[in-house]
Design a protein around this nucleic acid. Structure first.
Lengths: 187, 187
DNA sequence: CTTGACAAAGATAGAACTATCTTTTATGAT
DNA sequence: ATCATAAAAGATAGTTCTATCTTTGTCAAG
């Protein structure tokens, strides 16, 4: 029996990502992807159920990168002071964004095309469990002011993203100051 | 001679906007728009040069709403203290977003579909002249910290948008606090 | 060296769409 | 009432695309 070339699946994903980055997610078609890889169009369906499946796989791949980067364990480590954990959270997001700005673009684009797109691209990953409870804990302890969590998230991501896209980034300290002074509890 | 029904142009724009809000900008087609209005597809081309022209007109229409809302004159009125003008700017953006959340969605969607989409939807209008110089003036006067202007804009818009989309808004005071304490110069 | 299995390419049905061209219909002016 | 004009509808050429089905090619096991 003949074996399937697993590197080809990756090549297809890469081509898809390249098209999205250059022309936007709406421009993706199996024809263009296949042409870019140098295979026939029907061949794409050997590796992906359909176009949505392909897009979702690219989406998941970028998400996995994000998760692999940050050390989520420390964020929920109760032995670390909460202010320090908040800082850790922001640092890990900031570092990732600066290192992988295309990841954010890809996630944003795909989410925009496929879904009701929520507010921001990273919502899924760091959000849903760890970060929300971190923020809620900080509010309960009166370390940060009581604001809807999604406002804080939106703020963090927007600033990170803007900075990552800038030709020269402002640096983590400015970023941190911007966020922290906005959310910290005033005494 | 038979006269053109100008209300029909508006109806076409309305139908387009409705489709965008419900299914996203990528879902817009002259067929669907015409069906929604109850006219023939070719009829759309009597009022708009092509599909892009239609989308751009919807985009411009929403932009005009925003401009019509805020009183931009006061923002550049040098007799008003700069901190007060910064507050006015944020208030006008906040009020508009709360009153017209769909406007933001429409602009975001259309911009996303048509262009390289920059960072945020409102960039064009309040931005380009008045607001940028307001922020730069505030930085020069050391009223706010020296940060890239687009970071501040991104932050403002992201928070405003998130709040406007929330079922219950946090209110202007919380919004203002969040932004102001982030950007103000520390003494 | 043959053959089964599966990858790869080819071909194609069918849908959705854009933009233009043609025909019909309605209306305001004479 | 007639007629010119332009709106409205209809028809259509041509493109792009998805997803499936068919054919061809290739590799590995026996």
């Amino acid at each position: 029996m003949r074996k399937k070339d697993e590197t080809k699946k990756v090549k297809i994903q890469d081509a898809t990502a390249a098209i999205i980055l250059k022309y936007g997610a709406a421009a993706v078609s199996t024809i263009k992807v296949a042409k870019k890889v140098g295979i026939s169009q029907s061949n794409v369906y050997l590796y992906f159920k359909n176009k949505d499946d392909l897009l979702m796989s690219v989406y998941q791949r970028e998400l996995a990168k994000i998760i692999a980067t940050g050390d989520l364990t420390r964020i929920s480590d109760a032995t670390i002071p909460i202010t320090e954990r908040l800082r850790l959270y922001m640092k890990s997001i900031y570092d990732f964004a600066l290192k992988n700005p295309e990841s954010l673009t890809l996630i944003e684009q795909i989410k925009f095309l496929m879904g009701q797109s929520e507010t921001n691209p990273l919502a899924d990953q760091l959000n849903n469990n760890v970060v929300v409870s971190l923020l809620e804990e900080a509010m309960a302890a009166n370390v940060i002011r009581s604001i809807p969590v999604n406002l804080v998230m939106a703020m963090v991501f927007a600033v990170v993203r803007a900075d990552a896209m800038n030709p020269q980034s402002a640096g983590f300290d400015d970023f941190y100051h911007l966020i922290w002074n906005g959310i910290r509890a005033t005494d």
